[in-house]
Simulated scan of single mutants.
Amino acid sequence: MKRINSLAELTAALALLALSALMLINVFARNVIRQSFIGTETLAVYFMIWITFIGAAVIILQYGHVSVDFFLRMARTREGLSRAIGLLTVATALVISGFFIWYGAQLAYQLFMRGGRVATLGISQGYIYAFITVAMVLMFCNALILGWRLLIGDRSSYPGDYLQDDAP
């Protein structure tokens, strides 16, 4: 699973690099050549969506999603509370990613079957939603792994351990 997560991180990094290059090229083209390229804005939006969903899938293992640090700091000294917060995080991630997998797969399938195309790029819209569905499958798997680690008592998987101390 570490290799898959590393590949996902590399994919997100490459998408960010491509997004940056697209925007620089488009700014140059608009200001110097007085012409813009068709589809660059659409492609940039899709890259941003992909980066977001890939990142969400990978950071679940490090509790990188939005959290209330107050509760995590309070849970540092209480193993049961820390474990409960971790399991709540896992349950939430499983429900949300399951929702995205179920409806994303249906939407992608319908778009592939109906022939919905992105006008400026000439590709099926199904690819965009299929990619999101794949990223959510990764998030689901990572949440299952995290949940298993919490259930077997792997202390390194508890959420309070990922906080950094305020003191220097």
Results as ranks from 00 to 15, higher is better:
6 S>E: 14
134 V>N: 00
33 I>K: 02
66 V>G: 01
32 V>H: 02
81 L>G: 01
135 A>Q: 01
132 I>K: 02
134 V>I: 05
109 Y>P: 00
59 I>V: 14
79 E>P: 03
13 A>D: 06
5 N>H: 11
5 N>D: 15
92 T>Q: 11
83 R>K: 15
81 L>W: 14
142 N>I: 09
100 F>T: 05
88 L>H: 09
56 A>E: 09
87 L>K: 09
28 F>K: 07
44 A>V: 04
41 E>S: 11
155 R>H: 10
119 A>G: 09
97 S>K: 04
57 A>G: 15
140 F>Y: 12
146 L>D: 06
108 A>R: 05
72 L>N: 03
4 I>L: 15
74 M>A: 15
107 L>T: 00
167 A>Q: 11
37 F>Q: 08
125 Q>Y: 10
148 W>G: 10
139 M>T: 04
91 A>T: 13
55 G>E: 07
78 R>M: 13
78 R>S: 15
37 F>V: 14
141 C>S: 09
52 T>G: 14
127 Y>N: 03
90 V>K: 11
54 I>D: 05
106 Q>F: 02
19 L>F: 10
160 G>R: 01
109 Y>N: 08
82 S>H: 09
39 G>V: 04
21 A>R: 01
126 G>R: 03
39 G>A: 06
17 L>D: 07
118 V>I: 15
142 N>S: 13
131 F>L: 05
162 Y>F: 15
152 I>H: 09
137 V>P: 00
12 A>Y: 07
163 L>N: 08
99 F>Q: 05
149 R>N: 12
133 T>S: 01
13 A>W: 06
121 L>C: 07
42 T>D: 12
44 A>I: 00
158 Y>K: 06
40 T>C: 05
168 P>K: 04
154 D>K: 07
81 L>C: 07
72 L>G: 04
128 I>H: 02
151 L>I: 10
87 L>M: 14
22 L>P: 04
138 L>D: 06
140 F>G: 05
74 M>C: 07
22 L>S: 11
109 Y>Q: 08
63 Y>P: 05
139 M>I: 04
15 A>E: 01
164 Q>I: 10
103 Y>C: 02
125 Q>F: 07
95 V>A: 15
97 S>N: 13
101 I>W: 07
